[in-house]
Design a protein around this nucleic acid. Structure first.
Lengths: 356, 356
DNA sequence: GTGAAAGCGCTAACAG
DNA sequence: CTGTTAGCGCTTTCAC
């Protein structure tokens, strides 16, 4: 009575009668149990009008009892709309984790489900997107996509696409981004207010938003008369690149009094490496990140950073996707959210004798 | 000619003839293009025998041209098997990210696809699992599930379930874990070999593997005659709990010469907090983590840790799931993988005058 | 509120 | 290798 499921010990599993074991309950089963038609059950589960409150209750209760869940595959096949949003993300990016969590809440509110597909070094975006397409998602939300504009331009002909964090001018891709210009300016103004002039930028390479951040940095430096202090250190959006930049900076001799990093991951890599090399932050060098990932707020990291409104980005991404589904508009839309500088412990007045 | 899709500018989109815009290509379309039957196309896409190599090529080529992908919903509905594995993970856990990446590769090899569903503070495991069920996954792989054994016992009656990192004795859930006992002993032996006696353990709370690690720590301490040094600091598997533990330790006055943390996240939180408080690692205190997450190997974190074989865990998880699908065996199986101590920079001989 | 009927895109089994 | 025939579980439409 241990290997196979004993009929006798039914006390523990009211939801799965042994007789049904193996077969997934269908709408038919629910209908039979309540004594109504299958069509009515369908109405109830779609939330469509045409069933009394009492019927709804009874149907839902019966479904619960026998452990029925609507079969997405069947529903999708029949309705041509799956009510599923496909999300492509980078698993190692905890900012994406924040975004997705918020999107779950947002999507649920409008009756949508999310399916996640990861982009990774061993799994190209094309493959991740392909999987989403196979699942017949109604629309795609791509987080910081690093695909070519060409690929996206083709993709968006087949399914609504919204890109978070990266713009694709010239395509019909909807985008939701943080206002990069203001974000960068807030960070740099903060440093200048503290007295910094020798401010370097740790580049984000091919990462989402990098181009805009780099450009905004250069513009700002020129505008405030610090053109000769412009220094862009090569990097990308990983911790390793931050640590490497610290090394190179130390080896090169000329250390700026402040560094504006392309994102929090690289900032944290930099912070760690430079600290262990004996350079104090913020006493010897100030550091500003970008994103405000969970790690940044840790009691003793306390990274000053530009916070992206992840909840807002998530909300807008879902909203844009759904809206385009409901009433397709020809022109691409974009939603831009305001950033917020979060001043914590990695920024302070420049050290005496900085390279001014 | 900019809003709606101009028929004329077809040069850029050979894959999506304007005439078909909006409609997703079907098997029928592919068949018609090649001049074969729909059934043959099906054979080709299932990799079933019955089509010549040349036909396969032509079919695949035609599919590529018109941008055809098999519709998972339809396939699932028709075949009762979806060839999709559902994976529940915690998005903020980068160890899970490693696991999932490896699982993608593993699953692809055996012709399976993965669908991801996240467990998060605002999204209970039950909901995450429910979504997976709705997608009709053939089997479920749960990463470090924190669900009740009761829930899982019910779940496994409906679908094959494999749990990674946590055992569920008494249920039919298959499990794949790291050999916790040996792992803990390797870490502690290393510390003892360095000369440590005052070794504390930062607990993992409700996290996967915590019970075994705590127990193994206690056992080992007793066995080597350090019973009176046993100290378990409360915590969980987050960075914040590590930082908090550092605070309490400092406030408490009696700082051990070494700390064995429940996982890397808490170890890194601890490392950061204690370092900034002026305590040097490893000169003043040695630190060992658990998992070997990507951050641990960062040039300047260099956390000594017990490496879990993420690729191996992933491989076994997929293998167990698939095997149970092919030939259901009544008894639950479990696969235990060997850990590997990775000695990096956070461990050294104890400071002079440690609380011996 | 009900029941019947058609069909979503595919698989599976079979006779040719 | 081809073509046919049934469904898979649901939505949708329509008359009742």
């Amino acid at each position: 009575m241990k290997g196979r499921d004993g009929r006798a010990d039914g006390a523990r599993e009211p939801t799965v009668p042994a007789s049904n074991a193996g077969r997934r309950p269908t709408m038919e089963d629910v209908a039979a149990r309540v004594g109504v038609s299958r069509a009515l059950v369908s109405v109830v589960f779609r939330g469509a009008p045409g069933a009394s409150a009492r019927t709804r209750e009874r149907v839902l209760a019966a479904a619960e009892e026998i452990g029925y869940r609507p079969d997405l595959a069947a529903r999708t096949l029949a309705s041509s709309r799956s009510r599923v949003l496909g999300v492509m993300l980078t698993l190692h990016n905890t900012f994406h984790a924040d975004l997705v969590e918020a999107m779950y809440a947002e999507a649920e509110e409008v009756g949508y489900d999310l399916v996640l597909s990861a982009h990774a070094p061993t799994r190209h975006s094309e493959k991740a997107v392909g999987a989403l397409l196979g699942h017949r998602c109604d629309a795609l939300v791509l987080l910081g996509p690093e695909t070519g504009a060409h690929f996206l331009a083709d993709l968006v002909e087949r399914v609504p696409v919204v890109s978070v964090g990266r713009r694709f001018p010239g395509t019909r891709v909807d985008t939701v981004t943080t206002a990069e210009g203001p974000a960068v300016r807030q960070a740099l103004n903060h440093l200048r207010d503290l007295g910094h002039r020798d401010i370097a930028h740790l580049d984000g390479g091919g990462g989402a938003g990098s181009d805009e951040r780099r450009r905004s940095y250069r513009d700002w430096m020129r505008r405030v008369g610090l053109a000769d202090h412009v220094r862009v250190l090569p990097g990308d959006h990983t911790e390793a690149s931050g640590a490497e930049a610290a090394h190179r900076l130390l080896a090169g001799g000329r250390v700026p009094t402040a560094l504006f990093a392309g994102n929090d991951r690289s900032a944290i890599g930099f912070l760690d490496a430079i600290t262990r090399a004996g350079v104090r932050v913020p006493e010897d060098i100030s550091l500003v990140g970008y994103d405000d990932i969970p790690l940044a707020g840790l009691a003793h990291i306390q990274l000053t950073t530009v916070r992206q409104d992840s909840a807002g980005l998530a909300r807008e991404a879902v909203r844009l996707a759904i809206e385009r589904l409901e009433k397709p508009s020809p022109a691409p839309r974009s939603s831009v959210l305001e950033p917020e500088l979060v001043v914590r412990g990695t920024t302070a007045a420049p050290r005496a004798g900085g390279n001014d």
